[in-house]
């Protein structure tokens, strides 16, 4: 569903990504983990068609990212929630449908909006405005907006960056349950190791300058993730190994 083949990208003379390749063929959650500034968001933007790679090829469901975006096959959750303050929760979630070139019937749109708000647990808040919501709720509205058009891939750019640490853990657990239920192949980027391990089925470690995928880890913590996992030896062991790898410098030397 997502095929990235030898993507390279540079901002001017500064090379950011070098021949990054990976595939996601099923409804799995893939975390791209790496230190700040390594090029994680750049990679995500290339996948979304917001940046054009210098070399290499990206396909989403067999289409180029720009085409996939125009067909609303991409759901994107930004670091900031990017909600339109003058639109209610429901109207924010409706935005992609209004922008779509192929219009669905209003009944179907209403159904999808309802389903999406139900998924993120915000049906009761549908008439509220963004400034009346907490940071966590705002991010869930943005997630509902990304999921509502039923995209073929979901891209999350450090979705918890703007949320405080206490709320973060709760939202992380909720997000995992939502993503599992949505069954949408998901790529999310983060520099937070615990978050990446908790949420993902597979980890891509991004490192070096220009960045390459230095390692891939399969995370076998099961399909259901609860807060109990955060204290399980298996979870802590993976986190510890990743931290050791990061400290050893092995990550960035590749």
């Amino acid at each position: 569903m997502i095929a990235a083949d030898a993507i390279s990208f540079a901002f001017g003379r500064e090379k950011v990504l070098s021949k990054v390749s990976f595939r996601i063929d099923r409804a799995e959650i893939v975390a791209v983990l790496g230190p700040s500034g390594v090029g994680k968001t750049t990679l995500l933007r290339c996948i979304a068609g917001l940046l054009r790679p210098e070399t290499g090829k990206i396909e989403i469901d067999g289409s180029a990212p720009e085409v996939a975006a125009s067909e609303q096959k991409i759901g994107y959750l930004f670091q900031q929630d990017s909600l339109l303050e003058w639109r209610s929760v429901q109207e924010n979630v409706r935005l992609p449908f209004e922008a779509a070139s192929v219009k669905l019937s209003s009944d179907e749109i209403d159904q999808r909006i309802f389903k999406s708000l139900q998924l993120v647990g915000l049906v009761d808040a549908s008439t509220k405005f963004p400034h009346e919501l907490s940071g966590g709720m705002r991010q869930r509205v943005a997630l509902a907006r990304a999921l509502a058009p039923d995209p073929r891939v979901l891209l999350l750019d450090e979705p918890f960056a703007a949320i405080d640490l206490i709320t973060r853990e709760r939202i992380m657990i909720e997000l995992h349950a939502i993503l599992r239920e949505a069954e949408t192949p998901t790529v999310f980027v983060t520099h937070h190791i615990e978050e990446a391990v908790f949420l993902s089925d597979r980890l891509l470690l991004l490192g070096g300058k220009p960045a390459i995928i230095v390692d891939t880890w399969e995370i076998t913590l099961g399909l259901t993730r609860t807060d109990a996992i955060l204290s399980q030896p298996e979870f802590l062991d993976i986190v510890l190994k990743l931290k050791q790898k990061l400290r050893s410098g092995e990550w960035s030397r590749q």
Partner: peptide, 19 residues
């Protein structure tokens, strides 16, 4: 970020302007 949001949802430049 708003421009990127409108780009990702496949919005036309007219839609971006008015909305």
């Amino acid at each position: 970020v708003f421009k990127e949001l409108f780009s990702v949802i496949g919005a036309s430049s007219d839609f971006y302007f008015w909305n």
